[in-house]
Design a binder for these strands. Structure first.
Lengths: 259, 259
DNA sequence: CCAAAAGTGTTGCTGTTACACCCATGA
DNA sequence: TCATGGGTGTAACAGCAACACTTTTGG
């Protein structure tokens, strides 16, 4: 960073003094490099079995990893790691997710880049954070171990770094986006009933929805397909089973390519 | 990056092999560092004076910087540069904006982090991109020079790197956000008429809006304050002058702190 | 038959669109 | 007084929330 080989970046100062950007205090020769990492907030819906109750409404959970070195040794943190030279940002998030849960995400989106000067006591660090949704049935058989544990999204301990803020922001994005996109589908299995889809919305948004109006809203959005099958066994009228219409995207990301 | 001092990042592999994340191919000792830069898409509204016409509807413009070194020597690019050790991401965007235009942004928001493996021919580079709005009256007296020039946002030349995609995405975000936030105000001066505010929306969205309905929508949003003054001189009824209500934010960024 | 949840119908409210109309000014 | 844009009023429409009602199963 002390020569003029900076591949990208063009300041106006370069017009009068091409070297200016490389010789000021910000990039002095003895400055350490800025670390670059990718972390992921992974959401899944789980039946809250902490009380052993049956038929309880599912809630949002996310996996955390216990740190085994300073800083924040012993504290829980978002899964992540340094960005590899040969992988894209989303690839790194996918890898992280797989290493932590053994799963592949049904939905993955970049959340934000966090780069405050003092966010890590161990040196300057910029984290590009993704958020992901995994299916509840898959999440049930996800990896668990001494240093990986699932937590309810609304009852997190004090996390390492600024990770509490990051999770708060991810939750806000999830709830905001739930109201105008189809991402709820990413939390369910291959087929599902409308009641299950409604439960997802209710769990994420934290409020009850009218079954009749919810049905019409979803049917009118043309994002689901009737499979013709039913679920029997319950002591009520058998509900229809639906499937996603894979031809419509879960969310509109504008001109960005799919992750 | 070859020892275990990685300040952040916690993979599940660490459970069985704490050093795994630091010894695999992604961070081999001889790997070069990944470059980290901040770029900014700066929007301003300008009367299109290319044809010398008067009273023409204003359109979106943005400043670009001509590169004076490889790769892409001679091509136009977004203003930006390497992130300094002692500045936050938004600070770097602000600095870039000031160095390019001599202005301070009225609105600044992180757009996206671009990090494809092959996006720069000169080595691995991750760019955290911001987008900004500056006031048209200020933009009129912004810096211009041999290597800084303003372009109409919809008639850009072929830019360096993936900067055409980045501008497309910034435009998409601007247009999307214009419909549900108050960011249009950031493109205007201290005081303005409702017709001017409507012109901003029309220029950005690319369609005509009903003056009557637009008035009611804005007045109902409680984001503007009547100054009690009028604009005289035109050969029509003098329009009221309004001012922003500074107590309301231009946009809702959830739990994120203000930039 | 009853409980429970699926699924349908209907009504009233609210916000938006389209457009007719009046107002105040400069020339 | 006329042209021009500022500003107000209003009827029609669309979408949605609330809720009554019917349907289909297991016990």
């Amino acid at each position: 960073m002390t020569d003029d080989t900076t591949p990208e970046g063009t300041t106006a100062a370069a017009e009068s003094d091409p070297a200016a950007a490389d010789t000021d205090a910000r990039t002095s020769p003895d400055a350490e490099a800025i670390g670059l990492a990718v972390s992921t907030v992974i959401f899944a819906l789980r039946a809250d079995d902490r009380f052993g109750a049956q038929g309880v409404a599912p809630t949002l959970w996310l996996p955390l990893v216990r740190r085994i070195r300073d800083p924040f040794d012993g504290r829980w943190a978002l899964p992540g790691g340094p960005l590899g030279m040969t992988e894209g940002l989303a690839d790194a998030a996918r890898r992280t997710l797989g290493e932590t849960t053994g799963l592949a995400p049904r939905y993955l989106e970049q959340l934000y880049a966090f780069g405050d000067v003092d966010r890590s006591p161990a040196g300057r660090m910029v984290s590009v954070v993704y958020w992901a949704l995994v299916r509840s049935d898959e999440a049930a058989r996800a990896t668990v171990g001494q240093n990986v544990r699932w937590f309810p999204a609304d009852e997190l301990p004090e996390l390492a770094f600024d990770h509490n803020l990051i999770v708060d922001y991810a939750l806000w994005r999830l709830r905001t986006k739930m109201e105008y996109s189809r991402i709820a589908h990413a939390l369910l299995g291959e087929t599902f009933t409308l009641a299950q889809l409604r439960e997802v919305h209710e769990a994420v948004l934290g409020k009850r929805l009218d079954p009749a109006n919810f049905r019409r809203a979803v049917e009118g959005s043309d994002s689901i397909v009737d499979t013709g099958e039913f679920v029997t066994g319950a002591r009520n009228r058998p509900p229809k089973l639906y499937r996603y219409d894979a031809s419509v995207d879960l969310a509109d990301n504008g001109p960005l390519p799919h992750p």
